[in-house]
């Protein structure tokens, strides 16, 4: 049995800012080892785990899920040890007041801290309508300035502190479900493939630095040269004020110039055959996900995107529905089974 709750809990607790994903990689390496044949870490810090297929052509499917998270780095140490921060990746400054974080010190210890607030008693009327900015947000570690300067420097990483929580009806809340939840889906697919015959080699790429420009996926694809690549990332879920991908109703399948029509159609067909629900997700402009950079590597790579519906993206309380994760495992496993020697020829444009 694949323990979703345990895996999601553990992987989302880990520190892994863009460019500093090594703790996440160590954890995945350990957990996925029994399901795959080999693995390595590449130059830009993406982790590649390979499950060999039985086919003669050694065709390669790359499944890319990024494992970095948004957060901050220390921008300056102020008087009394308060910290000014600079975001790494897109964080909404409006959600930060009174939000708890961890700053990682030079010994890799996690120091708890909180974004300061001015209490309502002291807020001036004109400040009530002011939107907070990174000029006005500072972190309080409770440590003395001396100690702060000893353990923390400009550039020390900061992540949200947020515990993985079960809500009602298969919903879960936590930080960095974007996109570690998809990494866990990849692990579940690898687990599933242990008992499935498949022709192609499957390269599970746990990519780095997506949040700062989808860097890890592109360089990994360059190295692997896959025949087909599927990026898996979170998509905007339906929530109050936004009509997006409904939660619990299966993945989004990306459709648009970024995605190869044949793969999109095959994924849809697999879903239909297995009665797996899905939502078509039109993406008029390429980019934003790993699929954006993978598609244009070398002479081009046939690419598709599966989206896991997620609410409150880029906050410490992102919400997903576990049913959707399981649907994606089913869909990808079914798709991988269809990959054979002939499949390659079908990818040529007519």
């Amino acid at each position: 049995m694949f323990d979703w709750e345990k895996n999601l809990q553990q992987i989302t607790d880990l520190y892994g800012l863009s460019g500093e994903e090594s703790s996440v990689i160590q954890w995945i390496q350990k957990e996925i080892a029994p399901f795959v044949d080999e693995s390595y870490v590449n130059t830009l810090g993406s982790f590649v785990a390979i499950k060999k297929g039985k086919g003669s052509q050694r065709a390669k499917l790359m499944i890319s899920t990024h494992i970095d998270e948004i957060g901050f780095v220390v921008g300056a140490i102020l008087e009394n040890g308060f910290l000014r921060v600079e975001p790494r990746g897109g964080v909404d400054p409006k959600i930060l007041q009174a939000q708890e974080c961890f700053v990682r010190d030079i010994h890799n210890e996690m120091i708890p801290c909180v974004f300061s607030t001015v209490p309502p008693h002291l807020v001036k009327p004109e400040e009530r309508t002011k939107v907070p900015s990174y000029d006005t947000l500072i972190l309080d570690t409770g440590l003395e300035e001396k100690e702060v300067r000893k353990r923390i420097h400009v550039g020390s990483g900061i992540i949200f502190k947020s515990s993985f929580t079960k809500l009602l009806s298969d919903h879960y809340a936590g930080k960095t479900l974007d996109n570690r939840s998809c990494a866990v889906i990849s692990m579940a697919v690898a687990h599933e493939l242990m008992t499935v015959l498949h022709d192609w080699d499957v390269y599970f790429v746990f990519s780095s630095q997506e949040e700062v420009g989808t860097k890890g996926a592109g360089t990994s694809a360059w190295e692997i040269e896959p025949n087909v690549a599927i990026a898996m990332d979170v998509g905007f879920g339906s929530q109050n004020g936004h009509d997006g991908l409904p939660l619990g109703k299966g993945p989004g399948i990306g459709i648009g110039p970024n995605f190869t029509p044949k793969i999109v159609n095959d994924l849809r067909e697999c879903a239909d055959n297995k009665y797996i629900p899905f939502t078509l997700e039109p993406c008029a402009r390429p980019g934003g996900t790993d699929a954006g950079s993978i598609q244009i590597v070398r002479s081009g790579i046939p690419t598709a995107l599966l989206s896991l519906p997620l609410r409150y993206m880029h906050t410490p309380v992102e919400v997903l529905n576990l049913k959707d994760c399981k649907y994606i495992v089913e869909l990808l496993t079914a798709y991988i089974k269809t990959l054979n020697d002939e499949y390659l020829e079908g990818l040529q444009w007519s």
């Binding site: 905007f236 004020g241 936004h242 880029h314 906050t315 309380v317 919400v319």
Partner: peptide
């Protein structure tokens, strides 16, 4: 959790 529209939207 108290929800908010993602910054992207």
């Amino acid at each position: 959790v108290i929800g908010i529209l993602p910054i992207h939207l």
